[in-house]
Design a binder for these strands. Structure first.
Ligand SMILES: [Mn+2]
Ligand SMILES: [Mn+2]
Ligand SMILES: [Zn+2]
Ligand SMILES: [Zn+2]
Lengths: 145, 145
DNA sequence: AGAAAAAAATAGAAGAATTATAATCTTGAA
DNA sequence: TTCAAGATTATAATTCTTCTATTTTTTTCT
């Protein structure tokens, strides 16, 4: 499969150093960073990069379907997901992390497998699971011994 | 069942006119208003009511478990749900309305009925369904004739 | 009821995230 | 290389929410 920079090139996007850095950072990113988290990390390499550039690159990548913005927010800030496909997330009540979940929610759920509920046409489902992540569970059980 | 004002009284909350107005408005409300929507409506009756009062009353009602704040936002604004129980929502792609959904998602969805997934403990599930509401569907079919 | 204390409402300022603007710089085509 | 179009930057503006100081209302106590 082509990597993100090739796809952007194919789509006629001009590949500036800032955009490349943001796209590459996201493609290697395993969590759900906010705009300022991305900005802070990349400033080490690109000291002049502005937050406005990060926002505008994220907007572009969103429009191109390379990433998505989540509905949930981390401390009031928008979170971006390097994976543009609809999938589900767990918010850990202990550590606040947002984890992507692999299972296929809609297809395994009969009521959602229908495409109409209460007279409404369902096109996509995004579930937010609230709970405790495996790391925090481990810490808890370690404490109890 | 007791109404919201009685419950607030039982909990020792002082029932000021503003709080009563906000609580009663919410108890009769069938959708998911933002703070400023509530404020606009109530200003007709209470011209001096400030937006800060609305926010603080909402915070109080949230803490008391009388309402909940949704994870999703309407045009960047927080949405409040008069129903404090976990349930699911449809966001209409056409009109932008947020509709409460009645069905019991977790129990009808086998994978979610488990309380552990990927080593994470699941305590609550909120599903956001993206699609088209019944009203908008009707409008569409009317147009097509 | 009336006075004092506590709590709440208000107006406005402050804060934080995001978006818009204008100037400067870069890119890429001719 | 030249030049127009587009991107980045710094800064200002905007929007939503929270905070603060002051005023007003409610509650408590006599
Ligand atoms: Mn994800
Ligand atoms: Mn609801
Ligand atoms: Zn955790
Ligand atoms: Zn609709």
């Amino acid at each position: 499969m082509k990597d993100i920079l090739e796809r952007l090139k194919d789509k006629g996007v001009s590949l500036t150093p800032q955009r490349m850095a943001i796209a590459e950072f996201l493609s290697k990113c395993k969590n759900h960073p906010t705009a300022d988290e991305i900005h802070k990390v990349l400033q080490a390499k690109y000291p002049t990069m502005s937050l406005a550039t990060v926002y505008s690159a994220l907007e572009l990548l969103k429009e191109l379907g390379e990433i998505q913005e989540l509905s949930i927010r981390k401390r009031g800030k928008a979170c971006f997901d390097p994976n543009p496909d609809i999938h589900h997330h767990l918010l850990c009540k202990k550590c606040g992390k947002i984890l992507g979940m692999e299972f296929d929610y809609p297809r395994t759920c009969p009521i959602i497998a229908q495409d109409t509920i209460n007279g409404c046409k369902i096109e996509e489902v995004q579930a937010y699971l609230y709970g405790i992540c495996s790391e925090c569970l481990k810490k808890e059980s370690d404490k109890k011994g």
